[in-house]
Design a binder for these strands. Structure first.
Lengths: 254, 254
DNA sequence: CGCCAGGTTGACACTTTTCAAGCCGCGTGG
DNA sequence: CCACGCGGCTTGAAAAGTGTCAACCTGGCG
């Protein structure tokens, strides 16, 4: 039943990732298999080459490894190439809030520009490949700077919009609406990546999902169970299949 | 008792704002009274002049008037010169979420860069003066572009960090913590503007505060009353005086 | 003068959290 | 090889925190 989703869990780029961990000047962006979803889509050949010149390297992370941590000196922004990342803020008293879930083609670390130090932790939710983009060099691009700068601005802005929507969710939705929104959002993003809109694998524990949605893990679990009981989804651990999208959407329509 | 706060409600810049509503080339930034808190602090004279060249005009808003609305074509970003603004997202079903409160020196509208349309509504919380900055021209700055671009990036990033902190508040704090955080945050920002850290005027109704904090207006009211009962603050409508900062901070320390 | 928006407060309902118990699958070490 | 422990998940029952509804107060303004 959930076989397709299971294979998808691997979540490898469609084409093999060539020249991993290569030196700075390797044409990573030009030949990137993520071009379709990568923010760099829309750039010209020369502009892509420009972009390549600022890609410092690739990084590989395993489950739980940090890409950066709150307070570390900001030097680079990061692009998810494969795998999943989460960002979170931690309070002194230990409470933590997952502030974002990042999929291939999405960008991380822009919160570090403000003060020169990252404001959040970024942690891998499984094996992940990450493009490391030197912010320093990005600033000093000469050729093609216009297009690349505009791209960067769109990325910044997209992040702001994403966070606004998260605030809407956290500030004015009840548990069922939050979880439904979460599932529908995942579905969209998987679709954009060329995967099934209806069948996928959550990459987070119930606790992480809860933290992202501002709920306790038990509430997440109960809500998923209720959705299942009402025939909206099928759940098996982290495998999810959306059975009645309209039903999920209906929950949002109050 | 709350006299100082009452005068402060006017919230005029320290120096008179010269050449309001003037043509594009007026040296608004160079002579801006907000320099101390304005994001443009740190720019050189020439860079300031550059910045001036992108300031289209000034806009004056009254209570309830919109600076931009969700869906409108994005053309400019805005800087609050005097007064207060709020941003909000509205759902089809009418529910709305205040996503931000903006004071003099703070920037609005960057969410429009992503899609070319604003993603939120910006509404004045009272008489306000706003700098209108052409995004188009900002992009095409030649001289001094480096410094101005860096400045813009910091602004973007600061907004991202601000929203992350809002998510933390909305996702993992209880009502008392939210209100205490709100008051302490206001206190800091007023201080930065040269006003009293302990005595100020809320510019929003209880309902707006509630929406910003993800609470109902009654909860806001009750929480403020409770703070008052415990001798932490004094409240009289929108006039607030913080009596025991340590007490408020203590609430955050669980 | 009277209305109305904004604010406060109480009583009660509802959602979500908290606490607790138990299940499952998996890796480790006896 | 099996037992054990443990993290992750589910479910129930009770507690806590907020929301809802309603009454009432106040000040400003037509």
């Amino acid at each position: 039943m959930l076989a397709e989703a299971a294979t998808m869990q691997e979540f490898k780029p469609v084409m093999p990732v060539a020249r991993r961990m290569r030196a700075t000047t390797a044409p990573i962006c030009e030949s990137c298999s993520l071009r379709a979803v990568c923010p760099s889509s829309g750039l010209s050949k020369t502009e892509l080459r420009e972009l390549d010149s600022v890609v410092l390297s690739q990084r590989r992370l395993k489950l739980g490894q940090a890409l950066f941590r709150s307070g570390e000196a900001f030097q680079a922004i990061y692009l998810v190439r494969s795998g999943f990342m989460k960002t979170m803020i931690v309070l002194e008293d230990g409470r933590e809030q997952v502030t974002g879930l990042y999929m291939p083609g999405e960008m991380l670390g822009m919160d570090g520009v403000a003060s020169g130090r990252y404001a959040s932790d970024a942690v891998a939710l499984g094996d992940s490949d990450i493009c490391v983009i030197s912010y320093e060099r990005l600033q000093h691009l000469e050729e093609g700077a216009g297009a690349v700068q505009r791209l960067l601005h769109r990325m910044f802005s997209r992040e702001i919009v994403r966070e606004q929507q998260m605030m809407l969710l956290l500030g004015s939705m009840r548990a069922e609406e939050r979880v439904a929104t979460f599932l529908l959002n995942l579905s969209e993003r998987f679709t954009a990546l060329g995967f099934s809109p209806s069948e996928f694998v959550l990459r987070m524990t119930r606790e992480e999902i809860g933290s992202l949605l501002g709920l306790k893990l038990e509430t997440v679990s109960r809500t998923l169970s209720r959705f299942h009981k009402h025939g909206l989804i099928e759940v098996e651990g982290r495998h999810v299949r959306i059975v009645r999208v309209a039903g999920l959407r209906g929950i949002l329509a109050h």
